[in-house]
Design a protein around this nucleic acid. Structure first.
Lengths: 222, 222
DNA sequence: TTGGTGTTATTGGTTCAACCAATATACCAA
DNA sequence: TTGGTATATTGGTTGAACCAATAACACCAA
């Protein structure tokens, strides 16, 4: 299995550097950044390159710019979002065991609910989607992704889909490792069949329990 | 009460326009965008302005660029995130009653859990924070924000904080309306006292129930 | 057929220089 | 104290040029 290499351009690097400054507390909320012209000169990049980085940080809720005034650091505890957390975890995966624990905790809350809602709301199209996944020739890891996605979509709540995307982004590397173990593969294959059956049958209680069990299993392995 | 006016840059407008194209299906996943030089010319903005918009869309999970190749539309159901949902809701608030329902549903799942965890994990510093909020001279709406934030922080899970930020962003306009009604204010004030008391006492079961009740009340009013 | 080697055109990434437009600041006048 | 005015500062936008990765193609060799 090969995984895409992570190529970074200059503006990404600039963004990462500023994110680190803010998260580490070197730049404090409310503080004003030096003028763009000055920052770009000090970082030895063009002003436009810096500006592209700043646009990203704006979306992450880290700062806001006012024409004629300046660029202010925001308090990420007030305005940060899950994308920011993703960026933080990407940069130093190992040094944030706390955040991973937090994510697992939320997943434990959300995913069983998602499965329950899927069983309650699944449409005819959803049922077909599940059946197609089960008979497909995909690898276990691909199937796992597809099953979870189908569950999120059947749940009939757009947030499930976006929250699942978040989980997938966080654990995408981990999946390679997890599914390299034969026992985990077997457990997953059984899980796919069982939960699809429950959701197709509209058995929300079982669906919730099955999801809960597989999460418990996966957390132990982790 | 006055509310901040929403000033938009050119690049924001460009971003909005492309978002709409993607969400509406005019631009399909996998499709290649025309070259930057061409798009910027057609939209009558400079290439740099367009590029700043593109950087935002990248963070929202809507597209990805490859030097030497082109810019590709991603499937937002695979890679979209909650920030994207926020942007969609900002643009046409009224035309997305479904998404609001979805958000309320998730809030109903998360917030009671958050309150429960807060009661279990609150530190001495958290307790002081609650007490200070209660005796402060803030308006009800400000107090409400502060209480929810204190709960999220006491919950000892960084995701609670970011998820709360998301809810606050979505409902920030709604709050003005909600707290203009005297009865709602009274309910909230009682809620603030009750839940703070429960969390300080470490009574997780009560905290969960109190949060659940106030959400039920607020949803009815909505 | 397969894989390597150039060549060329296309396209995103970056730089530079200049100007526009909103804001802050200091100062002045009523 | 309030509101206007001139000036400097700062983010926003534009234009042109060049850099660097990629695609597409032709060609060749094993």
């Amino acid at each position: 299995m090969f995984i895409e290499v992570n190529k970074k351009n200059l503006s990404d690097e600039v963004a990462s550097q500023i994110i680190n400054r803010i998260i580490s507390g070197a730049l404090l909320p409310g503080e004003k950044l030096p003028p763009e012209r000055e920052v770009s000169e000090k970082m030895n990049v063009n002003r436009h390159t810096l500006r592209e980085a700043l646009r990203k940080l704006e979306v992450l809720g880290l700062l806001s710019a006012r024409q004629g005034d300046g660029i202010y650091i925001k308090d990420y505890r007030d305005s940060g979002n899950l994308e920011l957390l993703k960026h933080i975890l990407y940069q130093n995966k190992d040094s944030n065991p706390g955040a991973l624990k937090d994510i697992l905790e939320i997943r434990r809350i959300i995913s069983p609910e998602m499965a329950e809602k899927a069983a309650l709301n699944r449409t005819e199209a959803d049922i077909i989607a599940f059946q197609e996944i089960l008979v497909s020739e995909k690898s276990t890891i691909e199937k796992d992704l597809a099953i979870h996605q189908a569950i999120a979509r059947a749940g009939n709540n757009i947030l499930y889909i976006f929250i699942l995307n978040f989980f997938n982004d966080i654990f995408k590397d981990f999946g390679q490792l997890y599914f390299s173990i034969e026992e985990n593969k077997k457990v997953s294959n059984k899980f796919h069949n069982d939960i699809a059956k429950a959701i197709i049958a509209g058995d929300s209680k079982s669906a919730k329990k099955i999801m809960n069990d597989v999460i418990t299993y996966a957390e132990k392995k982790y």
